[in-house]
């Protein structure tokens, strides 16, 4: 059980939680994740460790509400317990000290960049974060992210903040020498189409790029093989071998397809959860 110490709404569907998990906080490294379960009979879902505070024994997670479990998690309040929380899982991110590192985030990926970019900045790398969202209101954690990198670049689809366009357009400009200049390494965390586009942008440029894959998971310890992905024509278990992989070797098509395996069931589950919460609302 992990007690919720703090809760903040970042967007209407994105919530930040600080939770008490001293053992996980003291072992956590940037890039790792936890698996949580919110209720008896509930699913186990993976969430990135956005930040950790070893002294306080606290973890920060940021949850985007997309289905049953993430929504249920979103209804928890300060003082409530998350039923099960286990971690840190996966391999810590390793990037050779490289000069200029560009982290690209979309959706909850912005949060995942927090402790990661802080650590890279602290060891002396030059760091840039490119954040993307549909519109200004969906860009999250701007203050916190400004503090952990040298340059924060924003992109919105509607131009309400930063560059009007996709993160990959700004990335291409940097590669051409604009702003903070050409990256030596790129890390992308966010929705699959975004990570795929970033991968294609850096491929011909020969810029080493890592992406954080988010396949469906159950145990997170290498026991089920449900999280398998193909990288460089080899099968890997993302929960133990990843979640970061060499973007230019990833079979994205397969990864996208496998993530859609339960679309029908997820819809049934979501509808049912909505019925349940409506029913509760009526009493």
């Amino acid at each position: 059980m992990a007690k919720i110490l703090e809760k903040r709404s970042l967007t209407p569907v994105t919530k930040l939680f600080r939770v008490e998990a001293p053992l996980v906080a003291s072992a956590a490294k940037p890039g790792q994740f936890v698996i949580v379960r919110v209720r008896e009979g509930g699913e186990r879902i993976p969430l990135t460790i956005a930040d950790y505070d070893r002294d306080e024994g606290a973890l920060t997670i940021v949850v985007q509400e997309v289905g049953t479990t993430t929504r249920l998690l979103g209804t928890l309040e300060v003082g409530d317990d998350i039923l099960d929380l286990v971690g840190p899982l996966g391999m810590a991110l390793e990037i050779p000290a490289a000069g200029h590192i560009v982290g690209i985030g979309g959706g909850f990926g912005a949060a995942a960049l927090l402790c990661l970019m802080r650590e890279l900045s602290a060891r002396g790398d030059r760091t840039t974060i490119i954040l993307g969202a549909r519109e200004k209101g969906l860009l999250i954690l701007l203050d916190e992210l400004t503090e952990v990198c040298d340059n924060l670049e924003l992109c919105t689809d509607d131009g309400s903040a930063g560059l009007k366009g996709f993160v990959t357009e700004r990335l291409a400009q940097l590669i051409d020498g604009d702003g903070p200049g050409r990256p030596d390494n790129v890390v992308a965390i966010g929705p699959m189409p975004m990570m795929r586009a970033v991968t294609e942008t850096t491929r011909d440029q020969g810029i080493p790029t890592l992406v954080s894959l988010d396949p469906l998971m159950i145990d997170g310890t290498g026991m089920c093989g449900g999280c398998r992905v193909t990288v460089n024509n080899e099968v890997k278990f993302a929960c133990v071998d990843g979640p970061f992989f060499d973007a230019h070797q990833v079979d994205f098509e397969e990864a996208v397809r496998r993530n859609k395996m339960y679309v029908k069931q997820e819809q049934i589950s979501k509808d049912r959860a909505e019925c349940r919460s409506l029913a509760v609302g009526q009493d």
């Binding site: 209720r39 009979g41 509930g42 699913e43 186990r44 049953t68 479990t69 159950i218 145990d219 026991m223 089920c224 093989g225 449900g226 397809r257 496998r258 859609k260 395996m261 339960y262 069931q265 997820e266 049934i268 589950s269 049912r272």
Partner: peptide, 27 residues
């Protein structure tokens, strides 16, 4: 899609109660 290891298949049912979906959340 539709290929499982026995561990995954059995874990979904025995540990996560997929036999009781959608009362339980794991399909």
């Amino acid at each position: 899609n539709g290929v499982y290891s026995a561990n995954e298949f059995l874990t979904r049912v025995n540990l996560m109660h997929a036999d009781d979906f959608p009362n339980a959340d794991t399909p």
